[in-house]
Design a protein around this nucleic acid. Structure first.
Length: 283
DNA sequence: ACCAGCTCCTGCTTGC
DNA sequence: TGCAAGCAGGAGCTGG
């Protein structure tokens, strides 16, 4: 599922249910997602207070009073559902959701948080908060695209040593952290850069445009609650709506909005992933 | 160091 | 209608 905007949306929805609340009970319905869950995860979470919640790239980081941080990645199909019966919130889980509802966390204050992940490409871990920067999932990540350390020079410098197609370089989380297939396609279209262009050959002026478009498209997607294609929902079950703003993603064969039908959107496969673009507008 | 290809898993869509 | 192949938003691993 989720790229940065979807994870940000989930995190913000999760905040009122968890932040400064107490974990009363944890039910693990299976011992693994993509990898085994951390040793004694249930016991290590139970009894803790959630002190803070942040996002790094596509990871949700939940800081606990125990001194550990709970890392959650939603993989491709992971989602989180929050219910709070003390607030009259009740979710009816479909048979499919119930079947893949792998982790259930009950808070003393009333919220019940379910992690649902059919494909199980998601992952969880626990790590001493003091060591979080060195966690193997986080230590090689590039800068946050909406943070202070991402700017034109960082992006241009990263591009200079990469001969691979710019599409692939942007999907590499070491270049910039949190982009996925959808938002890379959209940002490249907005910057009018062909996804096949070798990153190192793109002029600085165009990289500057791309830098701004990456930030724009992510901000807009967050404002729209992310994009709902199949799996992504907000934690109350409501849908994101940025998919209605897609210019190229998933629009193979449809007329390009920018050149007014002079060309239609094409799809190619790069590094095993579909790229959507307009031949006429992007070069 | 970089890069492309393969892999994990399940459900939905497409094509015969 | 039935069935198999192909496809999906991520990312670690392998071998060149």
């Amino acid at each position: 599922m989720p790229e940065l905007p979807e994870v940000e949306t989930v995190l913000n929805g999760l905040r009122p249910a968890l932040e400064h609340k107490h974990i009363e009970h944890v039910e693990l319905r299976r011992g693994d997602l993509r990898w085994p869950l951390p040793e004694n995860m249930g016991a290590r979470l139970t009894g803790s207070t959630v002190e803070n919640m942040t996002r790094r790239s596509k990871y949700i980081l939940i800081g606990l009073s125990s001194g550990e941080t709970w890392l959650i990645h939603l993989g491709m199909s992971g989602r989180i559902q929050v219910e709070d019966r003390t607030l009259g919130q009740f979710h009816h889980f479909t048979a499919m959701e119930e079947k893949h509802r792998h982790v259930i966390v009950k808070m003393r204050e009333g919220a019940c948080v379910s992690y649902i992940d059919p494909r199980r490409f998601g992952a969880m871990d626990l790590c001493a908060t003091a060591q979080i920067e060195n966690h193997v999932w986080l230590r090689n990540l590039g800068p946050e695209p909406l943070g202070n350390h991402f700017n034109l020079d960082v992006l241009f410098t990263a591009f200079q040593r990469r001969a691979a197609p710019v599409k692939n370089v942007l999907l590499d989380q070491k270049t910039v952290a949190g982009l996925g297939n959808i938002y890379v396609c959209e940002a490249l279209f907005e910057a009018r850069i062909h996804p096949n262009r070798p990153a190192k050959e793109i002029a600085k002026e165009q990289v500057e445009t791309l830098y701004h478009k990456i930030v724009d498209v992510l901000r807009q997607a967050i404002a729209a609650g992310g994009s709902t294609l199949r799996d992504h929902q907000q934690v109350d079950g409501s849908l994101g709506y940025f998919q209605h703003n897609f210019q190229v993603y998933g629009r193979e064969g449809a007329p390009c909005f920018a050149c007014d039908g002079k060309s239609e959107i094409r799809k190619i496969v790069q590094a095993g992933r579909s790229s959507f673009f307009c031949d006429h507008c992007q070069s």
